[in-house]
Nucleic acid binder design. Structure first.
Lengths: 342, 342
DNA sequence: CTGAAAGCGCTTACAG
DNA sequence: CTGAAAGCGCTTACAG
């Protein structure tokens, strides 16, 4: 039982066995595998046939020793936001006809940081990194980009030269929301934002809110409330805002989840939406459509963002080094939460 | 500039450089790295110090060539369900003090199947796999388990010998929901389930629903409606159910998201919850708490499930081969959607 | 307890 | 267009 060339301990077929079966060299098989140039059609066909016959599957660790792992790492800050699911759809579509696969890591503020996940992805020889909703600064991004191709989604840094960014126009998105509320007769429009401080999409949305308020002659009504992401803090802030003496007649929320919480608090306080209070969210997540929410929201087409980010990343992996910064136009979807009966 | 022992093309420090720096052999460094037995405390300390000084990080591809990659693969069927976020919290907690990292793959029915992701994880030499909400059959699970340690969450197969399972008691959970509705005076209780057909947690929940109905003497009112997961289908089914001549007075939904859609449809139809219609969901996701939903739901403590699954998987990676099947007790959380005013 | 050497399955110059 | 050989950074027997 020791004579067969196809002896294998692992059950895994190796490139050598494929080479033997096809009657070519190991190097030739490697070239076919990588779609490298310099192989005749005849040889390629022979090798492909042997691969199929033997059920060959590339050993990623071995490939990673010298070349690529055909794995790209996606870092999400928070799996809970259904908006990320839209991004993933785009990512998977972009990957469909390639050898690449996406592996996702989820950072959790206290347990495992964004940078810790990125490090572990670099340790694992991933070919490139997509950071979603990153809160790191330029220094860290440059550091990552010096080691691996990098694309960010949901982080504005149009001057960055070492990595690409993909975004919707957050400033414009916020302006759409405010302009819509103003057109609906709302005047005292507050904004609920996040207190983290390092998010560039947040500051862009805040900027858009300010600009739209000023342009509408409502500069004196500008009121940005920055709160941490925790349920309890949001609830407290919403309650304080809605019970205060100068209650706003509309609230623009930086993300849908917060808007849903505002609806919850307003409901508990007996406020009527949209009569007493107009609400607009961001991301146009799937929950907006439910009748009990009927939440107007800014759509940033996550699927597009995911698709483009992967496209750019693969370009970078293949050698592009000039930075690209894509900005997608957002779109407001109006629903009952901000539309007062005519 | 060619004389330094620490010459490196990649910027990455290798085990060899650590060995040189510490004045020991490469094998010794490897042992320290793996926490293997047979190294003196003195040697260990020397090596650790060199690692720190040089900023050594293990090269996962190289480790994967001979040993482990210290990576476990998690497969999710659908990132959209916030319940999975709870699982992830448990997973990350379980991983916190280990060398292991979790990488997540998301299957999408049409684009990339569960098995395709598992294959790509095996190709990537992951040390073990956790399947969440798997819809594969015993044959495929055994096949995976023959290649890599395997644990499933949300899949009942108590007789399986080649892999472990971690679940909440879905039958009991469904019974809790029905018993609660019955106690509230509801009689014509329908169940909204999924039409996929291969989910064992679904059949357990259906079984529990049946049992509880029969035990309550409501066997004739048993009505299980199985619908696909798409938004439109669910909406249509809910509408058909609620507009039909024999409208149920309560609906038990197999997962919260479906229950929220039922609330939506009921709201649109002008039905009052819980007076006209009682609703109970499953998973006790974060949306249940919002006042506009106030959805009663069965909590299966996803964090526990995730934690235990990783614990079991690491045990298996370290050598255990006898199967374990954990079942966690679910807990009903009652809210407004099923609680008629006394 | 410690170390020298082989080898995991690929890719990469290099030679032909 | 094709192939023989070196080597990526570890782990694993094996010898001492």
């Amino acid at each position: 039982m020791t004579a067969t060339g196809a002896e294998k301990k692992n059950g895994r077929v190796t490139i050598r066995e494929v080479a033997e079966d096809a009657g070519v060299s190991v190097a030739a098989v490697s070239k076919v595998l990588r779609d490298a140039y310099g192989v005749s059609d005849a040889l390629r066909a022979k090798v492909r046939a042997s691969m199929d016959r033997l059920g060959y599957r590339p050993h990623t660790a071995a490939r990673g020793m010298r070349g690529q792992t055909y794995t790209i790492g996606l870092v999400l800050p928070d799996i809970r936001n259904p908006f990320f699911a839209d991004i993933m759809v785009g990512v998977n579509n972009a990957l469909e006809r390639t050898q690449y696969r996406a592996m996702i890591g989820i950072s959790e503020s206290s347990v495992i940081t964004e940078m810790a996940i990125v490090d572990s992805m670099i340790d694992r020889q991933m070919d490139g990194i997509v950071l979603i909703g990153s809160t790191e600064d330029r220094g860290n991004h440059d550091r990552i980009a010096s080691l691996k191709p990098l694309v960010t989604i949901g982080h504005h840094d149009p001057e960055a030269t070492s990595f690409d960014t993909v975004n919707n126009n957050d400033q414009q998105g916020a302006m759409l929301a405010v302009q819509h509320l103003v057109a609906g007769g709302y005047r005292s429009i507050a904004m609920l934002s996040l207190s983290s401080g390092t998010s560039t999409i947040l500051s862009q949305r805040e900027l858009g809110y300010r600009r739209a308020m000023i342009e509408a002659g409502l500069g004196k009504a500008i009121n940005i409330v920055q709160i941490p992401q925790t349920l309890r803090e949001v609830q407290l802030a919403a309650r304080r805002l809605l019970e205060g003496s100068r209650r706003p007649d509309a609230i623009f929320c930086w993300t849908d989840f917060i808007a849903l919480e505002v609806i919850s608090v307003a409901t508990e306080l007996g406020l009527s939406i949209p009569a007493d209070l107009g609400i607009v969210g961001y991301d146009n997540t799937v929950y907006c459509d439910f009748a009990q929410n009927s939440l107007s929201s800014v759509d940033q087409s996550g699927e597009q963002l995911g698709l483009q980010a992967v496209r750019l990343l693969i370009e970078r992996i293949k050698g592009r080094s000039k930075a690209e910064h894509l900005v997608v136009t957002p779109r407001l979807v109006t629903r009952g939460s901000s539309t007062r009966a005519g």
